[in-house]
């Protein structure tokens, strides 16, 4: 009897959507689907986790898991693994889960695969490499449980209507693992819809030439409505716009109705975070830019003169 676990990230508003996506997939892989939720809100999240397929939720609301990075969660998860022996654990690609999964593989000697876009079985997962041009199937060997970090939005979350049995977990974390202490949390306020939820995403890159030109993207987002502004890694690295706007391998994965790439060349790093968009528009000066090959509609031209005219045209239609 195969047993698959989902390590569920819990946010301030309950389980993160990625946890529900992974549970939906886990139901295809095993008869026994269970979740581990560690940190404040874990017990409260069990109902939602059960609704998406977890039959058991190992839960601890202990604040230690939020206050200290990686080590307490990895320690308790390793203990639960030794006790309950799952075949496979799926993690979402979040900062906290990467910390936990990376540590767990050292303890269990298990294999850990990152950036999976699909899980094909208990010992097999799929990823995309070289800018999404190649699909690669990877066989996972070594001791169980096999560990897989899955990219967000790889699966659609569908409820199964189940309920979970909650098994309380006692934290019992040794003091020497209480070191990397989260002493402050800061939310960077974002106006408008979230990048992951907006119907339209307008993203800017180096082709904008200057950080002040992001204002053009903001204006376009405002006239379209329900639109959010994103960015390529190059301009985030250059300090033009905060990291929370970054789309791509290291940043957010988006899947909007329409994605508008402005002055973005289309490097691998960026493409994997947006290629699942329903429709793609790209505006680029360089007719050979890789992003134009991905676009449903490509505009070859200067974004800085194009955008004001586009904003004007949309305003004219809407009035």
């Amino acid at each position: 009897m195969a047993k698959v676990w989902v390590y569920a990230d819990i946010g301030p508003e309950g389980p993160r959507p990625s946890a529900l996506e992974l549970l939906t997939k886990a139901r295809d892989l095993a008869d026994t689907v269970e979740a581990v939720a560690l940190g404040p809100g874990a017990t409260g999240a069990a109902a939602a986790l059960g609704d998406y397929g977890a039959k058991t939720v190992y839960a601890s609301d202990d604040p230690v898991f939020g206050e200290y990075l990686g080590q307490p969660a990895a320690h308790v998860l390793a203990r639960l693994v030794a006790e309950h022996v799952p075949n496979l654990i799926m993690f979402a690609t979040t900062y906290d889960s990467r910390d936990v999964a990376g540590r767990l593989q050292a303890t269990t000697g298990s294999t850990l695969m990152s950036n999976a876009t699909d899980v094909l079985g208990l010992d097999r997962a799929r990823t995309e490499i070289l800018g999404g041009t190649k699909i690669v199937d990877v066989s996972l060997g070594g001791p169980e449980p096999r560990l897989v970090l899955v990219r967000p939005k790889s699966f659609a979350a569908e409820p199964s209507g189940g309920t979970a049995n909650v098994v309380p977990v006692v934290a019992e974390v040794p003091d020497e693992l209480l070191k990397a202490h989260r002493v402050e949390r800061h939310e960077e306020p974002a106006s408008g819809p979230k990048l992951e939820e907006a119907k339209v995403v307008i993203a800017g890159g180096r082709g904008l030439q200057d950080p002040t030109n992001f204002a053009l993207l903001e204006r376009l987002a405002a006239v379209i409505g329900n639109a959010a502004v994103g960015a390529s890694r190059a301009v985030v690295d250059a300090g033009w716009i905060p990291y929370s706007h970054q789309i791509g391998q290291t940043g957010k994965t988006v899947k909007p109705e329409v994605y508008v790439a402005v002055g973005i060349s289309g490097a691998t790093q960026h493409v994997v975070g947006m290629k699942q968009s329903k429709r793609i528009v790209a505006i680029n000066k360089d007719p050979d830019a890789p992003i134009l090959k991905l676009a449903d509609l490509g505009v070859v031209g200067d974004a800085l003169s194009f955008l004001p005219r586009l904003i004007e045209a949309i305003e004219a239609r809407e009035s």
Partner: peptide
């Protein structure tokens, strides 16, 4: 403990439409 067992080309997207000049807006 991991090995690649198969590699295939991802399905290519159909070539999109490219516009420039005054009609683009």
């Amino acid at each position: 403990t991991q090995s690649v067992i198969a590699v295939e080309a991802a399905p290519q997207k159909a070539v999109g439409e490219i516009v420039q000049g005054d009609d683009a807006v």
